[in-house]
């Protein structure tokens, strides 16, 4: 809880500072864009949070976004598939990618880093292959389908401000994810095995099955993200569509309180983390004249956040241990 409070404060501070430094930050156009991007990144960040909770990592997210983001328009326009068939195909594809990762990691005991790093190279390569590295897009067609990402839901009582459609997806995903993680026995199993897989297994938990599930969720949400991203921007260039998105997602999850050691994380925190990442990127674009220092700033902020978290944790453990000793007498 304290963690969410801390990160929310940080988000607020960055927002205030940016609005002071740049007039365009608070413009309706900019805000709406920011909120929309937050929703899109929030979805893929929640996905990777499940994997991080198990103590694993998923580096393939950006490439899954690319594969799905290029695959959907390619199937619809070049291959002439129907909308339901194409949606079903890319969804099934992303879920099977997660299953594939999960099986390699649990049954063959391959390190998650290696498996998903190979995925990162593999899926982008495949996307560049079947598109022949050409930009794919919807052009002026599929307006109805695109409303899923571009649409807006007018909000009562809030003046002219409306909620971007991806927020509906984010809210549904977030509620389901939060209920799953906190209210079901499977969520408890994930948290337990993330802390100590051996003890979880000795307690009769089928840890392999839970880990596989986490990777399926991660790739599945990356796939959903890919669909929404491409519907939002209308076209995708295979060479860089979704590039580095896994890092934004991982950073959002970590900033939001997921420990890379596993066993820890909240869905609300991850969403706030995703928002913070987007505001930081926005700030860099608006305030500085050159975008090329973006990674330096983001890297520095995340590092600072993680260091602060670790120091606070150590302090808390020491205090608690001292109190436990004092109580024993």
């Amino acid at each position: 809880m304290k963690k969410i409070l801390g990160i929310t404060t940080l988000l607020f501070v960055v927002c205030v500072l940016t609005s002071l430094a740049s007039d365009s930050f608070l413009s309706a156009y900019n805000l709406e864009n920011l909120v929309r991007r937050t929703a899109l990144f929030g979805i893929i960040s929640i996905g990777v949070a499940f994997v991080i909770v198990t103590g694993g990592i998923d580096l393939s997210i950006g490439s899954v976004v690319c594969l799905v983001g290029c695959g959907l328009p390619w199937l619809l326009t070049t291959q002439g598939w129907s909308v339901p068939a194409a949606l079903l195909a890319v969804t099934a594809l992303s879920l099977s990618i997660g299953l594939f990762h999960g099986l390699l990691i649990t049954k063959l005991k391959l390190p998650p880093f290696v498996v998903t790093l190979c995925g990162l190279l593999l899926y982008r390569g495949i996307a560049r292959g079947f598109t022949r590295d050409q930009t794919v897009g919807f052009g002026s067609d599929f307006k109805g389908l695109r409303t899923l990402a571009t649409g807006e839901i007018p909000l009562p009582f809030l003046g002219g401000f409306s909620l971007p459609a991806p927020w509906i997806f984010l809210l549904v995903v977030a509620v389901l994810a939060a209920v799953f993680l906190n209210r079901t026995i499977y969520g408890r199993y994930l948290l337990a095995l993330g802390r100590n897989e051996e003890a979880a297994r000795y307690s009769g938990i089928n840890t392999d099955r839970m880990v596989i599930l986490a990777y399926v969720i991660s790739s599945g949400l990356a796939g959903l993200g890919g669909i929404l991203f491409v519907l939002d921007v209308n076209s995708a260039q295979p060479v860089d569509f979704g590039n580095f998105y896994e890092l934004y997602a991982i950073a959002a999850a970590v900033l939001g309180g997921c420990s890379l050691r596993g066993g820890e994380g909240t869905i609300v925190g991850v969403i706030v983390g995703a928002a913070l990442m987007q505001v930081l990127r926005n700030m860099i674009t608006l305030v500085t004249t050159h975008n090329n220092i973006e990674f330096a700033i983001i890297g520095a902020v995340i590092l600072a956040g993680v260091i602060a978290d670790e120091l606070v944790k150590r302090y808390a453990i020491r205090r608690r241990a001292a109190r436990a000793l004092a109580a024993e007498g």
């Binding site: 026995i185 408890r188 199993y189 948290l191 337990a192 802390r195 100590n196 051996e198 003890a199 979880a200 000795y202 307690s203 009769g204 938990i205 066993g263």
Partner: peptide, 19 residues
């Protein structure tokens, strides 16, 4: 390493097998 999950609460550890 095998018996308890150190970072988790007493309650969570006690219920782990019977959830």
């Amino acid at each position: 390493h095998q018996g308890v999950i150190l970072e988790m609460a007493v309650r969570t550890n006690l219920s782990l097998a019977s959830l």
